[in-house]
Simulated scan of single mutants.
Amino acid sequence: MAVVKYPSLGFTSRVTPMAPAEQQEDGYPLPFVAKAFACSADIAAQVVRRGRLRHFGDRAIILRQGDWLTLAYLLISGRAQALLYGADGQIILLHDFRSGDLFGAIGEIDSVRQDADVVALDPVETFVLEAAELARLAEQHGAIGLALSRMLMARLRQMTGRIYERAALSAVGRVYAELLREARRAPDLRISPAPILSELALRVATTRETASRAVNALDRRGIIRRDAYSLTVVAPHRLEALII
Score class of each variant (00 low, 15 high):
residue 146 L to A: 11
residue 237 H to D: 13
residue 181 R to Q: 13
residue 195 P to E: 08
residue 160 T to L: 11
residue 52 R to W: 12
residue 197 L to S: 07
residue 183 A to E: 11
residue 97 F to T: 00
residue 114 Q to G: 01
residue 140 Q to I: 00
residue 71 L to G: 01
residue 2 A to V: 07
residue 235 A to K: 14
residue 6 Y to W: 06
residue 42 D to E: 15
residue 137 L to Q: 02
residue 34 A to E: 12
residue 178 E to K: 12
residue 139 E to H: 14
residue 122 D to P: 04
residue 225 R to G: 04
residue 130 E to S: 13
residue 76 I to C: 07
residue 77 S to F: 06
residue 96 D to I: 00
residue 18 M to A: 15
residue 206 T to Q: 04
residue 192 S to A: 14
residue 21 A to S: 07
residue 194 A to G: 15
residue 15 V to H: 12
residue 229 Y to G: 04
residue 158 Q to V: 00
residue 104 G to W: 11
residue 169 L to A: 03
residue 107 G to Q: 08
residue 114 Q to A: 12
residue 116 A to S: 13
residue 212 S to W: 14
residue 23 Q to K: 14
residue 64 R to E: 12
residue 51 G to P: 05
residue 15 V to K: 11
residue 138 A to N: 01
residue 172 V to H: 14
residue 100 G to C: 04
residue 60 A to Q: 03
residue 195 P to T: 01
residue 234 V to H: 06
residue 179 L to Y: 04
residue 182 E to K: 07
residue 74 L to W: 09
residue 99 S to T: 02
residue 6 Y to V: 00
residue 136 R to P: 01
residue 147 A to P: 05
residue 148 L to K: 06
residue 119 V to Q: 07
residue 113 R to C: 07
residue 78 G to E: 11
residue 242 L to R: 11
residue 155 R to Y: 08
residue 170 S to M: 06
residue 215 V to D: 09
residue 63 L to C: 07
residue 174 R to D: 03
residue 145 G to M: 12
residue 156 L to N: 03
